[in-house]
Nucleic acid binder design. Structure first.
Length: 301
RNA sequence: GGUGCCAUAGCUCAGUAGGUAGAGCAACGGACUGAAAAUCCGUGUGUCCGUGGUUCGAUUCCACGUGGCACCA
């Protein structure tokens, strides 16, 4: 039997965790979490990480495996997951990867180009340049160092420009020369499923879940991390709004409303990402049997 | 009961010296190969409270009605 990676994705708050644990029980397998914020062990409440009980019931990987101080990326995730799958496929024909981080899922499913790592000091240099000269300064340098990418990149998105510049500066070669955009074939079969709900229901769930997080101690969790608030891992819905409240910039009630709104917007962005992926078969959270039928049907092919 | 003010987008409000209307927030759509729960881009969605009147033409002016607010009884 061919090894299979079963992807379970869907917007935040839709109920992926429960579905994926049920599927893991049914298939007698383990779960690779693909959620770029559940990696961080300091923020379980705000990321709605699987509970102790759920973790006990089903073995999860990549949950709380990093500190918010660690650097991580989609590329590192691709490398780590492929390595882990090599081990897991010795014990399981099917492994589940569940989560909502689209770029990380894509990195595992079809890879991303090999590009050398960047010295953090170089990124810092460009962030400074952005602060001092604005986006115009970044654009001017990119036009010189990589005119090809200059024509393609979103020139109003400073992160995209900095990314290209730091590669140019690190390697001495244009960023665009590394971008092959090839889709790598994997040694295992990939079945992609998504969990979705009507927008209205999803947004109600999200609003309720934020209230639950507050009850579960999100505020206290955020307060402990206040001094680290400038770390990228904490530029996250649920934390940035509370930091703003702690700094006196908004009141508590407004901060909670903003968490809800920003989570809704995040869910919308996730759905936009997947809209172009025609390989995903969509189900409702209650359709467990349909998902099992679909997967077993595909496995029999 | 009387007088005055108000009624325009989901919300708060602008505006049209009469030519079917626009801001903020919300909402909606999209991009995205190493920060991605990040970052960036785009879009006004409207019986202008109702019914008459004046007018070539009324959301705008007039009358009445309805609802809200304030003050006087």
């Amino acid at each position: 039997m061919q090894n299979t990676l079963l992807v379970v994705t869907g917007p935040t708050g839709v109920g992926k965790t429960d579905v994926s644990i049920s599927l893991a029980s049914f298939f007698g397998t383990e779960i690779i979490s693909c959620d770029s914020r559940q990696f961080y062990r300091e923020i379980p409440v705000g990321t709605c990480a699987p509970s102790e009980e759920q973790l006990w019931k089903t073995r999860h990987h990549f949950v709380g495996n990093l500190s918010v101080r660690d650097y991580y990326s989609a590329s590192l995730f691709e490398r780590d997951v492929l390595a882990l799958l090599g081990v897991l496929f010795k014990q399981h024909d099917l492994v589940i990867m569940a989560g909502g981080s689209g770029m990380y899922i894509d990195a595992v499913c079809h890879g991303i180009d090999d590009i050398p790592d960047v010295d953090p000091m170089i990124r810092e240099k460009y962030v400074m340049k952005y602060r001092e000269e604005g986006i115009e300064g970044l654009r001017a340098e990119l036009k010189l160092l990589d005119p090809v990418h200059f024509k393609k990149v979103d020139l109003r998105n400073y992160k995209r420009i900095i990314r290209a510049l730091e590669i140019c500066a690190t390697t001495g070669m244009p960023y665009s020369s590394f971008m092959k955009m090839e889709k790598r074939r994997r040694e295992f079969r990939i079945i992609k499923t998504g969990i979705e709900l009507p927008r209205r229901e999803l947004f109600e769930r999200i609003n309720r879940r934020v209230d639950t997080m507050i009850c579960n101690g999100l505020e206290e969790e955020a307060r402990l991390l206040f001094d680290l608030r400038n770390l990228n891992a904490l530029n996250t819905v649920g934390y940035k709004e509370l930091f703003s409240y702690f700094e006196g910039k908004t009141d508590r009630e407004t901060a909670i409303e903003l968490i809800k709104r920003n989570t809704r917007r995040y869910a919308k962005r996730q759905m936009t990402w997947w809209a172009r992926d025609k390989d995903i078969r969509w189900f409702n959270p209650g359709d467990l049997q349909q998902i099992i039928d679909y997967v077993t049907g595909r496995l029999a092919d």
